[in-house]
Amino acid sequence: MSVAADRLRVVTPTPDSELIRCSPLIGCGQLKSRKQMAQPGPKSPLCNTCYQRARRERQGPAEIRRANLWAKYRITPEQYDRFRADQQFRCGICGAKEADIDLSKVGGRPCKDGRTLFKVPLAVDHDHTTGAVRGLLCPPCNAGLGAFGDDPDRLRSAIAYLTAIVRSPGG
């Protein structure tokens, strides 16, 4: 077969259900479906988890922060810092000062490799439907909005409930 004919040869795609072993040398070595592979090629195939871990190991904290802010909220660290300044370094709901927020109550998954997390006192609050960033919140306010499902009607009902309890003779 000529070189030109070889280039024109139709390659049948492999099914997505095909199992590929993640590289045992630089990855987990587990069998994963093609959809779970970041680099399914013949040279050192890596699953998504191992690929992300390897990428993170090459990055410093500033690069990781930039990547996380962009991936989750489509903002840069500079935009985050602008939000902080616009809110006078306070929570957008309760007004708690950023410097007074207890970082031990700030969430985040621990790093598997033992590195410490880069914790920030104010979380990015965003609309889960549109992805639009609304502002920055302290951990209790952020958790509160999440617990109410970002539903203004439920929050108004909670305010009415609390107001009624306070005004009632038994409260």
Rank of each mutant, 00 (worst) to 15 (best):
G60F: 05
Q30N: 10
R53W: 02
V106S: 06
D100E: 15
Q52H: 11
N48C: 09
G60N: 14
Y73A: 12
D102I: 03
A38Q: 12
C94K: 02
D86Y: 04
R65F: 08
L25E: 10
Y80A: 06
D86W: 06
S44P: 01
M37L: 11
R9Y: 03
I26Y: 08
D16Y: 01
C28D: 05
E57H: 12
D100V: 10
R34G: 00
L25F: 08
C91V: 08
R55T: 13
E18K: 15
R55M: 12
L25C: 07
L46M: 14
S17Q: 09
R21D: 00
C50F: 00
Q52C: 08
R9W: 03
C47Q: 04
G92T: 10
K105M: 11
P77L: 01
V106T: 12
Q88S: 12
Y51G: 03
N48W: 06
P24Y: 01
I26G: 05
T49A: 15
R53T: 14
C50L: 04
R74S: 14
I26N: 09
N68S: 10
R56I: 06
L103P: 14
D100K: 13
E57V: 04
K32C: 09
G107Q: 04
F83T: 07
K105G: 15
L103V: 05
C94A: 09
R74V: 04
P45Y: 02
Q30A: 12
R34Q: 03
P15R: 14
A85L: 11
S44V: 10
K32N: 10
M37T: 00
T76F: 13
Q39T: 15
I101E: 03
R56T: 13
A96P: 05
Y80N: 04
Q39A: 14
A99Y: 04
E18Q: 15
N48G: 07
P24R: 03
L25S: 14
M37A: 04
R84D: 02
C91A: 10
Q36T: 01
T12I: 04
P42G: 13
K105N: 11
A67G: 08
Q36R: 07
L19H: 09
I101T: 01
G95R: 08
M37W: 00
D102N: 14
S17P: 15
S104G: 08
V10Y: 07
G108V: 03
R84H: 01
T76N: 11
D100A: 10
V106Q: 06
E18G: 02
R74W: 01
R74D: 09
P40I: 00
Q79I: 07
D86S: 07
P61C: 03
D81M: 15
T14E: 12
S44F: 11
D100S: 12
N48L: 11
Q88H: 12
G108L: 02
L19R: 13
Y73H: 14
R9K: 11
A67L: 09
R53K: 14
C94V: 06
S104D: 12
P24T: 01
K35N: 14
R65A: 03
A67Q: 13
Q30R: 12
A54M: 07
